[in-house]
Design a protein around this nucleic acid. Structure first.
Ligand code: ZN
Ligand code: ZN
Ligand code: ZN
Ligand code: ZN
Lengths: 130, 130
DNA sequence: TAACGCTGTGTAATAATATAACATTTATAA
DNA sequence: TTATAAATGTTATATTATTACACAGCGTTA
């Protein structure tokens, strides 16, 4: 059984917003949207984002400084993320590929480093933009 | 034969600095260091960084907003980068693993997306920090 | 109960990262 | 030569993210 996190009011408001979008949202765009719900300052947004990332409800797209909801119950540990990003329309999709995930999970370098997380971003052109 | 890029003065100054460091440097720390050489504004740094990334002389560590020199003549296309990052001491190493690179290069999703680039960052604890 | 640690809140200020706009200069190509 | 692309220098500004501080709520435990 997985521990069910209880989200606070601010966290819920922000998660709701991100989940309603199928594309990544930026922190200040989130801030703009939640002002009507009483969230007034950047820090309130960043604090909620940090928690949501930590518990795996959302992921940060590092190359875009944006946040997207995770739709895969299996990666809610936030430790293994793969995305494809269209450099033309900026469409982002989370990739779930068993073989690739396995390969990455099992990767060992020759420096004795102990990994506990990875993030992979593929860039290219989506079908619509080719 | 590979086309040898001719770097401009600013680009050379900034590449030199980054190559002398074995760890990633941040843009404003670079700016601070090159002020004595007549580079005065952030934009001058960011323009040089952009070019150097484009020609593969340096890579951006996206999760850290920092830039590291590429020591591998083979990835000077800047299209296929893998890094390991220690979350304790922030040590960054570029990884060259033939099998993993091959796997990533050959990866195809089921959406018909055409990839031309990827960036992979592993996080964990290095030998010293375990 | 009271004291404590932990997490979250609200607010203000500020730090850190990155780009826009403009005039000019330099390098390369036709 | 002309023209065209790439780089420069400068000022201003936009965007992203954190520090600092006072306080509130909650569960643990002395
Ligand atoms: Zn996910
Ligand atoms: Zn697209
Ligand atoms: Zn490289
Ligand atoms: Zn370390």
């Amino acid at each position: 059984m997985q521990k069910q996190e209880t989200l606070t009011k601010n966290q819920k408001i922000i998660l709701d917003l991100i989940e309603k979008s199928d594309q990544p949202l930026k922190a200040y765009s989130i801030l703009f949207d939640v002002k009507k719900k009483g969230i007034n300052a950047p820090l309130q947004v960043y604090r909620a984002l940090k928690k949501l990332v930590k518990i795996g409800k959302i992921h940060k797209i590092e190359s875009r400084n944006a946040f997207i909801a995770c739709k895969n119950s299996k990666c809610q540990i936030a430790k293994a993320t793969i995305f494809s990003i269209c450099e033309s329309c900026e469409d982002v999709t989370e990739i779930h590929d068993h073989k690739l995930s396995e390969h990455l999970r099992d990767f060992k370098d020759n420096k004795g480093m102990k990994y506990n997380k990875y993030n992979l971003e593929f860039f290219g052109l989506c079908k619509k933009c080719v």
